[in-house]
Design a protein around this nucleic acid. Sequence first.
DNA 1: GTACTCTGCGCC
DNA 2: AAACGGCGCAGAGTAC
Length: 666
Amino acid sequence: MISVVLDFETWSCCDLKKAGAWRYSEDLSTEIICLAYSVDGQPPAAFQPSAYEPDHPFAVHVHEPITMFIAHNAAFEHAIWENIMHRRLGWPMLPAERWHDTMAVCAMKSLPLKLELAATVMRLGFQKDTEGTKETLAYGRLMAAGETIKATQKFTRIVNYCKQDVRVEEELHRHLRGLGAAERKVWLLDQAINRRGIRLDLPLVKACRQICRDASVPLAKEFTALTGIEKPGSPALLPWLANNGTLLPNLQKETIDRALKIETDNSDAGDMAPENPVLLPPDCRLALDLRRQLSSASVKKLAAMEACAGSDGRAHGLLQYHGATTGRWAGRLLQPQNFPRLSLKVESEAIDPDQLVSVLQTGDADFVSAMYGNPLSAVAAGLRHLLVADSGNTFIVGDYSKIECVIVLALAGQQHTAWEVIEKGSAVYTDMASKIFKRPVAKTDQAEYTIGKNIVLGCGFQMGWRKFKSRYGAGLPEELCQEAIREYRTVFAPAVPKLWYALEDAAVRCIWDARPVESYGIEYRLENGWLTARLPSGRKLWYFDPKPGRKAMPWSTPEEPDIRAAFEYSAWKLGKWKRIVAYGGLLTENVVQAMARDLLVNGMFEAEEAGYPIVLTVHDEIICEVPHEKANSYVLKQCMETAPPWARHIGIPVAAECWTGERYRK
DNA sequence: GTACTCTGCGCC
DNA sequence: AAACGGCGCAGAGTAC
């Protein structure tokens, strides 16, 4: 088999970051500057593509069906190939099966996705030409501005830059190798989903944008007139509030909500942190209220939707294969994985999606306001419904019930508890709440019930009482949070802490002794520069550059030190390449999240085989789009509940809830 | 202008 | 005796 590593340089009036590769490649202003390529590791060649000629030196590779085309983020090269090389210039099609993606392998092996950074951390001989990147972008801007003559002088420079990229990619590929057969199938499915895209209700997007504009302009003016601050999102509001008699620790939503609540509901004053004021001056109250109304960040998705919609009215490229280290997909462009789950209520009646849509379709902010109050909130609540099935089609959507909770219980060996969580449902939460609060708690005791539910579902990964209090129980006494955590660890799921310690011990021993160590069916092993964790499915998680280390335990003091063996590794966290010290809860979380992903992938393949094409996935959720007459949510339920042998062996109760509808919802 | 960091917000 | 898991994006501010 012959491998051709290739890289396009292009320019366009279209913004690649906002539009995504598919929309960008469709844009009529997008032009190829050059194509550089290397055949089987030979020094790179480059040319400026023009109308297809069968005798072109590059065409021989296209004609040879077993030749593979390798690129970093192959979806970009593939899109340019399809929409420009094929449609515009007449070259033959190259199906996804002919492509290999080095970025996908970087993702799988927990390296940075950005080529430049991957080359750096891998210490490759060839490195990205960072000056070339800047010059190429500058060239594109000149061309987009119509300054052709000045730009042309830079052409040779860009060709050399492009060739250097190919050298880096070729070397990276030689070090990383392939995805393996199983993950290659997943990647191909990922490419198919991104290629299909998901339809957007663009007229409704437009109406929603109008509503947001009309609603926010007067509010923003009022805010500026009051505070003298131009932008409602500015951190300058904090000192302004202080000067006007209101000291707040930050401008987080919850802080603002509580500060506003204190004025109207003094009974809650006891819960307030001491730094918060007991009385809120009217100016501060108004400023905070305006900021709160304007801070609905999620409506920014409207612009993202318009920017990335393709000529087919669909958004493509919303998913990044293996975007998370555990193998989960990450969301791109309009980020479809964090739509608000708001449900609007009028006089405690929930608003039906169809009704909300019909109100938003008016595009009339005053009307929306009259119906539901804050129009920005109404738009935010309707965002999910902007994803629609094409005419004649319907969505079939399913999600796995409490999947991470039941996996951690089953993996730890408490299968009976896992089944109870699925079969008894809310009774498990009320039981937990009753024990924590030491009195009978019913499902209708909302606050207590929610605490019970959060403990059952959320404490499998070593969450401590402080974290629990800050996340779920702001108003709860410390002792109660401690008691709740204790209840989970000693009574509800005593096997789970053992799992944390066992996985940490296994990984640490593997690294310190440099030998494979297995525990709870997870095998840790050193492979070249990585620590791998083999999951029950056979897939591996990769931890880059692991090194033995020591860590002081939280109770360690200079007089009585308690320093233990540990290990650290490198990973991409919060936009940075960082060293991370592992602990049991983290390793457990990784393994459990990864197993949930493997179950999801299994369900995805089952759905595809049943003829239900997937158009989106959100961690534990599968969204298929099928013709009306084929739509049967029970079929998807069966697909998703078909557990692979490894999951049956562990005894994971796999349950899915499915529904159909023409608009996406929660 | 561009790149980067920080803060904040949304979800699983 | 024990722990902030996994993400992306936008806006603001700052440095170059």
